[in-house]
Design a protein around this nucleic acid. Structure first.
Lengths: 151, 151
DNA sequence: TTTTCATGTAACAAACAATGATACATATTG
DNA sequence: CAATATGTATCATTGTTTGTTACATGAAAA
């Protein structure tokens, strides 16, 4: 798997949950992500704390959605996974004494802040329901050609 | 130092070179970045290959700029340092079989691509000369208040 | 020409972060 | 009480980045 795909991974399992009529175990979800059940629990722990998903223990237990897909945006999930730094590159220092570095930081900051704002804005405009609908379209197009096969 | 600050680091040393009337050694430059001379050479090697800087060996040698500050943009330098992935997060897979993941990827891609395009556009609009001018303003404002002190 | 200073680069070490794995406690079902 | 599943701490593994050492090369100056 590639680096730092938490947002992508979380969305992935959320959609799987959205299209399941029963709770899915960490074991099953980890299969979708080709990872480890514990990693799934760790990753979803934050979303649970925020009320986006629920986990129930014991036989028949597992993870289910507990939010309205139409009301949750990608930005919400982005925040929920810890709003990791958007950019791969950053500053050397936040408040440098060196005037040269101050000039560099200011020059870069403008560009990066604008780009981040745009990104957040776009993420705010897409709901989980949108993704779900997109999946449905793909699924139907796919079924027409071949035998259904999600994974 | 923070992670992946190559762009920031490179701009920093380029500006120092711009405001120096002699060649600066890797040793000196590494002092500005609080790092190791070898790291500086490694980092600047790419810029040298592209003709933005020159290095001369031997006594009195070191690094000098060999480009027109007004004609080189931050985007050029960004490309020169390897155009690293802009974003800290990415996809799990580029061409997933899983329809759910396809839907997720498409949803995220739009937002990320737009943000990247904006960022590149902004970087293209700022030249090294702009940064240099910004430094000069800071330097003069600073001199008015205190005794000059760059580092 | 020999010494000195500087880059060029390979090879290796250290530090760090992300991920994976193990172990065990807890809760729930039947 | 047995089976199943999450919760979580702890430790191992992996990979990337950064730092270090070592040595070759080239240029200037004595």
């Amino acid at each position: 798997m590639k680096k730092d795909c938490k947002l992508s991974s979380v969305l992935h399992v959320l959609l799987h949950m959205a299209h399941s009529d029963r709770a899915l175990t960490s074991e099953e979800l980890s299969g979708y992500l080709q990872t480890n059940p514990v990693v799934v629990r760790r990753t979803l722990a934050g979303l649970r704390a925020l009320g986006y998903v629920e986990a129930v223990k014991g036989p028949g237990g597992g993870w289910t959605l507990s939010c309205d897909l139409a009301k949750v945006t990608l930005r919400d999930i982005y925040d929920a996974v810890g709003a990791p730094g958007v950019f791969a590159m950053g500053h050397r220092e936040e408040n440098p004494q060196c005037l040269v570095e101050q000039a560099v930081n200011e020059g870069l900051d403008k560009a990066f802040q604008e780009a981040e704002a745009l990104l957040i804005g776009r993420l705010s405009g897409v709901t989980l329901a949108d993704l779900s609908a997109d999946f449905n379209r793909r699924y139907q197009a796919h079924s027409r050609r071949k035998t259904p096969h999600v994974h």
